[in-house]
């Protein structure tokens, strides 16, 4: 897309810097941490011990991890130049609707495609470890998504800009200032295009990233469905989930 007159190259460079800095500062694990932990796997005994936990205990554990990750994502959003200029209603809508998407993008940094494992609580876990959740379809969808996204081999810069672009989706329901968000998202996408152009792979790689959006949305919806079902079966446990988790994924 041509650069609109209102958006100078300087502005695009500024947003790239802001988003990338924000991503690096708010990643739970640095690339060095991930390299160091790459071969730290759950033993078969440890996997079995997770599998024999009750659904309530395993859900609680996952809810706590997701909540921790959300706090970092809120901080990521806050540090994106322009996000805090939006009204607080829109900031909350964007975070509620987009934090799971950003979490999924961030997850692919912590995914090892060689052995199909994902970093969970300090060690790499296979999908079978999450059996006690009783959500095999959701777990496989998350692992498949991480596998497919990691195939694109995004750089940290690209991942940062893609996360910001997804977070700043102007099509979320109940937003007040759609135009302002669209402008900000356009700027982020232009920043992403600029980064990709430097690599000489622009259109193809961007198209691959954007093609993952429907899968992301379907995983987010599946997570909400599973949570609602869990809430029906175990209302007391669901009530003890971290308040931030309940706030973000509440109806």
């Amino acid at each position: 897309n041509p650069v609109p007159e209102s958006c100078s190259l300087l502005e695009i460079e500024h947003i790239i810097q802001s988003v990338v800095k924000s991503h690096i500062e708010t990643s739970q694990y640095s690339t060095e941490d991930l390299k160091r932990l790459a071969w730290s796997l759950y033993s078969p005994e440890e996997t079995r011990s997770h599998q024999t936990k009750s659904a309530e205990v395993m859900w609680q554990q996952c809810a706590i991890h997701i909540t921790n990750a959300i706090q970092y994502i809120v901080e990521f959003a806050k540090r994106i130049s322009g996000f805090m200029d939006l009204c607080q209603n829109d900031q909350i809508i964007l975070l509620k609707a987009g934090c799971m998407d950003v979490l999924l993008i961030r997850m692919c940094r912590a995914f090892n495609p060689i052995n199909n494992t994902l970093l969970f609580d300090g060690k790499f876990a296979s999908p079978q470890l999450f059996k006690a959740l009783g959500c095999d379809d959701l777990v496989s969808a998350v692992f498949d998504f991480a596998k497919n996204l990691s195939r694109i081999q995004m750089s940290e810069e690209e991942m940062a800009l893609f996360s910001a672009a997804v977070l700043l989706s102007p099509d979320r329901q109940w937003l007040t200032d759609v135009q302002k968000i669209r402008k900000l998202q356009d700027k982020v996408y232009m920043g992403l295009q600029r980064c990709l152009q430097k690599e000489g792979v622009s259109d193809e790689k961007l198209a691959k990233m954007v093609s993952k959006l429907p899968a992301m949305r379907s995983i987010c919806n599946l997570h909400i469905d599973k949570l609602e079902f869990f809430r029906l079966v175990h209302p007391e446990t669901a009530f003890t989930f971290p308040p931030l988790y309940r706030e973000v994924f509440g109806s």
Binding site: E25, T26, Q71, V74, K78, I92, L244
Partner: peptide, 20 residues
Amino acid sequence: KEKHKILHQLLQNSTSPVDL
């Protein structure tokens, strides 16, 4: 506002509750 109390707080805090 009450419904999103924690998100409001996190957004208003100049420092994050997480150890960044």
